[in-house]
Design a protein around this nucleic acid. Structure first.
Lengths: 147, 147
DNA sequence: CTTTAAACAGTGTAATTACACCTATTATAG
DNA sequence: CTATAATAGGTGTAATTACACTGTTTAAAG
């Protein structure tokens, strides 16, 4: 009897839709804080991951970031072009290991303070306890789901 | 005194990093369920939003999806090419209104069952209560943060 | 040792995302 | 009514994402 009966009953239950929305929203905010550093929040996360796993391979970093391996290859290109990251032959003849350059470390350190401002701004907007809850929920998801 | 003192202390606190990881992970899973329908989870969400807001403008749909307006324009291209969505002149001479075609509604209805399987699979993996908590947290974020 | 399988990484193609910049239309100020 | 603002939308460029496919190197099977 209703006019629009069945269509569009999916979104109210779709976790993926929410996650994609939230990722877009937060990414744009963080990007705004990082703009003066010349890097995006995606690049910041990649630099941070490489910094924390010095000499790791492409596949290892991709797995850590829950990212397709070929996506990581593409995302490395601009960071290599501006000289923040280098790839070197790994122990294994197949793999290549990633490393931050001196200028990459410097840029990352500078970006840290901007990132912190972005995170604090977010926590101020949503409230610390909600952010803690959300972080914990996301950690549970990321830990439990297979790559 | 420590070997790696300051570098990489950002990620453990970064909500955006988590959100981007989770969005990639979930999107790939949902995409796998939808592959036989020939659409992605991003396209499914867009079809659902248009279906639920018939005759809405580009900007309205973009705002609803927390998406940049120009991103929406780009995302519409493949859906228009395969004939699932049409844009028509809006009441205002500037705006254009979006509408699903008959084949678009049909494709969306068919995709619904695949989406449901994807969502159920996710809930089975993470647990229903955790999913509900996460959904509620994300709703809080999406409601509270300005576009 | 040779063959086969597995692991590691790059490229072609295409969708996703968004900023800077542009055009066109409508609304507002004077 | 005209000049200016604001609103709506598209394009150029570039980064982000991932699948299909390819090549190369190492490991495993025989």
């Amino acid at each position: 009897m209703t006019k629009q009966p069945i269509l569009a009953n999916a979104l109210p239950d779709c976790t993926c839709y929410r996650l994609r929305q939230a990722a877009r929203l937060l990414s744009r905010s963080y990007d705004g804080f990082l703009i003066s550093c010349g890097i995006s929040i995606g690049q910041f996360g990649l630099l941070a991951t490489i910094a924390g796993m010095e000499a790791a391979s492409i596949s290892t970093i991709a797995d850590t970031m829950k990212m397709d391996r070929t996506t990581l290859t593409r995302n490395l290109t601009p960071l290599q072009r501006i000289g923040y990251v280098v790839t070197e032959p790994g122990s294994d003849g197949r793999s290549r290991s990633l490393r931050l350059t001196a200028s990459g470390k410097k840029a990352f350190t500078a970006a840290m303070s901007k990132w912190r401002a972005a995170q604090i701004d977010f926590e101020k907007q949503l409230g610390t306890s909600r952010v803690k809850q959300l972080n914990a929920d996301l950690d549970g998801l990321l830990k439990k789901l297979p790559n």
